[in-house]
Design a protein around this nucleic acid. Sequence first.
DNA 1: ATGATTTTGTACCAATCGGTAGTTAAATAG
DNA 2: CTATTTAACTACCGATTGGTACAAAATCAT
Lengths: 217, 217
Amino acid sequence: MSDVIDTEKLEQQSAKSPVKSRGRPLAFNQDEALERALQVFWSRGYEGTSMAELVDALGINKPSIYATFGNKEALFRKALAKYLAGPVAYVAKAMSEPTAYQVAEKFLTSSAEFLTNLDNPRGCMVVQAALTCGQSSTMIQQELIDHRKNYENLLSQRFELAKTQGDLSSQVDAVALAKYIATIHQGLSVQATSGASKDELMAVIKLALQSWPTKFS
Amino acid sequence: MSDVIDTEKLEQQSAKSPVKSRGRPLAFNQDEALERALQVFWSRGYEGTSMAELVDALGINKPSIYATFGNKEALFRKALAKYLAGPVAYVAKAMSEPTAYQVAEKFLTSSAEFLTNLDNPRGCMVVQAALTCGQSSTMIQQELIDHRKNYENLLSQRFELAKTQGDLSSQVDAVALAKYIATIHQGLSVQATSGASKDELMAVIKLALQSWPTKFS
DNA sequence: ATGATTTTGTACCAATCGGTAGTTAAATAG
DNA sequence: CTATTTAACTACCGATTGGTACAAAATCAT
């Protein structure tokens, strides 16, 4: 009885496992293709990106895209996951700064760097990819809202922790403070898309952090 | 020689002038129709709005829309003009507050009210209607960027004035302060679209205004 | 070799996109 | 009444939308 063969057949073979598959081999690198799809969705948004444009950008014909990634919605979700795990990883890093103030400062300043980085499209994909959209895209719109809320929760939980650790006054409303920082971040994203420079964003952040509540605690 | 007849033929007869026009009369109120178009563009954005949806919302068939307002782009611009002259008039009002701080406070608090008003779509149309879009809409995208920049300039000019009037320290960077207030506003717009309540936005504003530079001047 | 399996690439699908031609309907002018 | 003017409305346009059927090509197993 063969009980070893099929076990990893269900998984999409990762780029690093040179498992000899049966049929004709893929003529492109899945990860590279997904990265290119991410770049397009990032700069044009969900509805602003057409399959035709994706075909051009990935250099793959349409049926291969559908066979590999599923439909446009599925491809967007996979690109979004890559975005969250890759370029946006700086957010998680910021959470482990020693104090709440440093968390906020690191989060915002690395955002300023990230949002205006010339190697990327301007602005944050989670903020801009589907702020407004037609009725057919409300699912994607809602998922992005959930992701924003999720990051906001990350901040508020970190601030709650800071209150127990003593580097943030116990009288501070961690939820409101998190919403404040998230609001700044989202505003910075709009500013970056509108052409603001890193230095300009840094000046905004400097003002934003002057209202940090520790000075009143 | 008839030199009196044609003079006001070029103007679109305003709703208040019951000038007997020659042919079949309009079966709808132009201003009402434009208001409905505004509501759709406001909630769905430029690309997210289809002509079919506009036909439904206005209750007018497509050729009449084109005859009255021009194409989709022209209709959007007219709806945007109505938006700027109507719902957004509160911004100009805020500028005439007596001090720079009161200008910022009034601007932001009335924004919080406006952005979460249940009678309107959530969020600001100038911020959200075309943050990302396909290549065919980059003109509209740029026009909205220009409008945002325009409002930011209004703020910075008002703050410069305040410096000469003495209610804002002459050492303050008015341009940076204006960009800070604009960034907050844009962040609030994203928050409102994501479901934040007026009270939540007010709490954010309270934090944002704690960094007001007068206390250091 | 042959057959099985998987991907590629052309060519296509119905539906929707923004936009319009051309006819009918409703008003005024004479 | 008839002629003229203007708007309404049906029906349509080519282009593009997201999505697929199907056959040729490339690999593996035997």
